[in-house]
Design a protein around this nucleic acid. Structure first.
Lengths: 154, 154
DNA sequence: CCGATATAGTTTGATATCAATATAAATGAC
DNA sequence: GTCATTTATATTGATATCAAACTATATCGG
């Protein structure tokens, strides 16, 4: 029988399991991602792709760097995530006329239609998640998550 | 100038951006993962690897299927995640004596030492995240995340 | 015992994720 | 105007993530 290391007691394991916000957030993120992925599968979208498409539904044609912070993503992650969407013809990229480095992203008609079709399902899933909260309301939960996503910066 | 589609108004985009718990959780998960990854990099661990190692700090030698739900992970994800840890000699797998299908996972001495060394840094990072919360306390936030991770089941 | 079903884990193929690095263009200092 | 710095994006290599399909073993009903 293996003895526990006295410098690394079971209580430390329980402390991490019970208290670690990082673990709690990662776990919730996995569960929620699966749930939204399931709901959006009939539309051929993942939860992340839905969020990206929705962030492009703006009249101004945002740049990659405009939406990366919105999604809390590294820009290189977003570069990679755009490829399947572009390949599927849901989004289009055009060179910025003012800044040759930048590219302006936009929804195609196909992408907009896809998004329009998925929106009611997103809404229903979202309402179901909200309804699953017990001790804390959705607004408070979002506030806490926004605090976390600020990353300790003012 | 592109007109907005009246069936997909800007208000829908703002609704998703401001209200979607899935998006909020994914964003917080990314930011928090980067933060813990940075803090744990000197130990050669990612936030997820730290959580996995810590979940193995038990006297009984848990099976893969015991810890996958704890982490909210798919079993196949965990299978893949264990490989670099085994390769690095931080964990070991042994056949279960009672059930030939199962494998019992355990920390090696090296893994335990690594975990012991990383624990104070984890604690400091964790405290800093807790301190960054404004409107809501860590306990309430964890409760909300646990509700979400329950996935709507009772 | 035997066949049906359930469980433990792996594999495959696709996407997601980041750090580090690279390339190109814009901006700022002088 | 020129050089240094910053900004915008892309590429690479590693790990993370899941669904679906697979193998092997266990369990259960008869």
């Amino acid at each position: 029988m293996t003895m526990m290391d006295p410098d690394l007691p079971l209580s430390a394991t329980h402390e991490v399991r019970d208290r670690c916000l990082c673990l709690h957030v990662q776990r919730a993120a996995r569960v929620l991602a699966r749930r939204f992925d399931d709901a959006l599968r009939p539309f051929g979208l993942t939860n992340g792709q839905f969020s990206i498409l929705m962030s492009l539904n703006r009249p101004d044609g945002p740049r990659l760097s405009d939406i990366a912070p919105l999604l809390g993503m590294d820009r290189s992650t977003l570069t990679a995530a755009l490829k399947p969407l572009e390949r599927a013809g849901l989004i289009a990229a055009a060179a910025d006329t003012k800044d040759a480095r930048a590219k302006r992203l936009s929804l195609t008609d196909l992408g907009r239609d896809r998004l329009k079709a998925a929106l009611p399902v997103w809404r229903a899933t979202h309402d179901a998640v909200d309804a699953g909260l017990s001790g804390i309301g959705p607004d408070d939960l979002r506030q806490g998550l926004m605090d976390v996503a600020r990353g300790g910066r003012p």
